[in-house]
Write a protein that binds this DNA or RNA. Structure first.
Length: 482
DNA sequence: TGAAATGTTGGGGCG
DNA sequence: ACGCCCCAACATTTC
């Protein structure tokens, strides 16, 4: 009797059954062993706390799904390039399949895996992961990467062809005794040890089913008003897909396919709302394009002139920012939403990031590290790109001198002050006129609202005008002596 | 996907 | 009727 053809499915950031290339290829074997390897690699960007919370629950959902189909997910710890090869030996596998992770810090490890596997006649099949295109798909005519978003977008939609894979009908069985060495999910120790995630379950339902459902209902209800509503932090005007996309619970291709099947091809869309949404999906691709072509940007500015920018290290300022105690309600509301829900509205991400960099003079790297640890959607490409955009040092970035006014931004995008009132309840009785600048409110209004500045809510840690002028002064260092 | 400073215009009050 | 000033509203420039 011949031994059955067996493959290992290395599950990475792709916790879905739909539109999953490695999984589809895996169904062509007689036995398939799905494995998740919790690696303790020492990169500077190991998963943050909020991200681990999500990972725990998405593994759980994925495992249950596999179990329903008569399979299971093997959980192991260790270095993938060793563990996977050992498993391949143990189970006589002839191939290892995976979807690429597009994390530059994984490159060495995957390279070693492939080299070692080749030596032992083990086939390695790296498939397209959770991106619409590889970094070589789209380059300028001179062969260099795009650095301007609109050009990237224009050429992308010209060239891109939408293709999706349906979910496999069935999954091959596990090899015998496959689960003997599996750890339990709890043994991966992904949940926080402090009681910080208490509210997360109220805000998030993790897993592929929910991701698909969210896209469906967003396309049905939210998409046609996306342009007007997406910038208002007190309104659920966005699709909130980011963590689902990050963990590969849904492929961006599937999202586009669902949009296209209702509204027609991307290149001939007429509705501004739909175009804007597709553009936002494409920003994620652009971020990866930049990350993969310029991997040093996780730590250093893309525009090297900014290495001269004189950031300061003020721990008190940083703590005030992180805890949501800066005295600027739009900033504090955002930072508290982040801490309590693992997510922040995009408009407010821009405001809080701008405030840290420009008003408090603290480096974007420090802010990025905080977001990395506290966001459930923490994504190396988007996070890096977003912070560099705000700091003015990234590709197609906001010019440094465009400094957000934290008062007018609040008033403009949340005129009723509902966002501040919700996340800073100590201010909730203050009328909208004053809620984004409580220090300017007449004493009588503060008393009526039960606010004692400096006690129940902080005074502003910096003065807006002074901080702005200081930032512009510091910016001179970048412009000088190229 | 800015905000502030500066410039321009035109209506209205007033001598 | 006219010139002058004020200032709101809008436009342009600058950071």
């Amino acid at each position: 009797m011949t031994k059955p053809k067996t493959a290992i499915l290395w599950v990475r950031n792709d916790f879905r059954f739909d539109d999953n290339e490695a999984l589809c290829q895996g169904t062509e074997y007689e036995q398939l062993l799905p494995v998740y390897v919790a690696s303790e690699s020492q990169t500077p960007f190991n998963r943050g706390g909020a991200s681990k919370w999500w990972l725990h629950h998405t593994i759980d959902a994925y495992k249950k799904r596999l179990r329903k189909l008569g399979s299971e997910l093997l959980l192991v710890k260790g270095r993938p390039e060793e563990v996977l090869l050992q498993l391949a030996k143990d189970y006589n596998a002839e191939a290892i399949l995976w979807n690429r992770s597009y994390n530059p810090y994984d490159a060495d490890m995957v390279g070693k895996l492939i080299a070692k596997a080749n030596k032992m006649q083990l086939e390695t099949i790296g498939c397209k992961g959770s991106l619409l295109c590889e970094k070589e798909f789209l380059l300028k005519d001179d062969g260099t990467p795009y650095k301007v978003y609109t050009a990237f977008w224009r050429n992308f939609i010209k060239k891109y062809e939408l293709k999706v894979l349906d979910r496999p009908k069935k999954i091959p069985p596990l090899p015998p005794k496959a689960l003997e060495h599996s750890l339990s999910l709890e043994q991966l120790e992904l949940l926080p040890t402090i009681n910080w995630d208490a509210e997360f379950p109220e805000h998030w339902q993790v897993g592929e089913d929910r991701a698909q459902e969210k896209v469906r209902s967003f396309i049905e209800d939210g998409l046609s008003r996306y342009n007007d509503l997406r910038d208002q932090p007190n309104i659920d005007g966005t699709s909130k897909l980011s963590p689902h996309l990050h963990f590969g619970e849904i492929h961006p291709q599937r999202v586009l396919q669902m949009v296209v099947s209702k509204y027609g091809p991307i290149s001939s869309l007429g509705d501004k709302n739909i175009i804007q949404y597709c553009k936002e999906i494409l920003w994620r691709e652009f971020s990866y394009h930049l990350l993969l072509h310029f991997p040093h940007t996780t730590k250093k500015p893309l525009n090297a002139d900014f290495e001269k920018f004189p950031y300061q290290k003020d721990e008190d300022f940083f703590k005030a920012w992180a805890k949501g105690q800066t005295g600027y309600p739009i900033v504090d509301a955002g930072m508290r939403q982040l801490w309590r829900t693992g997510w922040m509205h995009n408009r407010v991400r821009m405001i809080t990031a701008s405030f840290l960099i420009k008003h408090l003079g603290i480096s974007w790297q420090k802010g990025a590290a905080w977001f990395w640890d506290t966001l459930v959607d923490a994504d190396l490409a988007s996070n890096t790109q977003g912070w560099q955009w705000t700091a003015g040092c990234g590709a197609d970035a906001a010019p440094f001198f465009r400094i957000f006014n934290p008062i007018t931004q609040g008033e403009k995008f949340d005129p009723k002050g509902l966002y501040a009132a919700h996340w800073c309840p100590e201010l909730s009785k203050l009328p909208p006129k004053w809620i984004y600048k409580p220090w300017e409110a007449p004493e009588s209004e503060l008393i009526k609202a039960g606010i004692e500045l400096g006690e129940t809510y902080p005074y502003p840690v910096v003065d807006h005008r002074e901080a702005r002028e200081k930032a512009l002064e510091n910016y001179e260092m970048v412009k000088k002596k190229r």
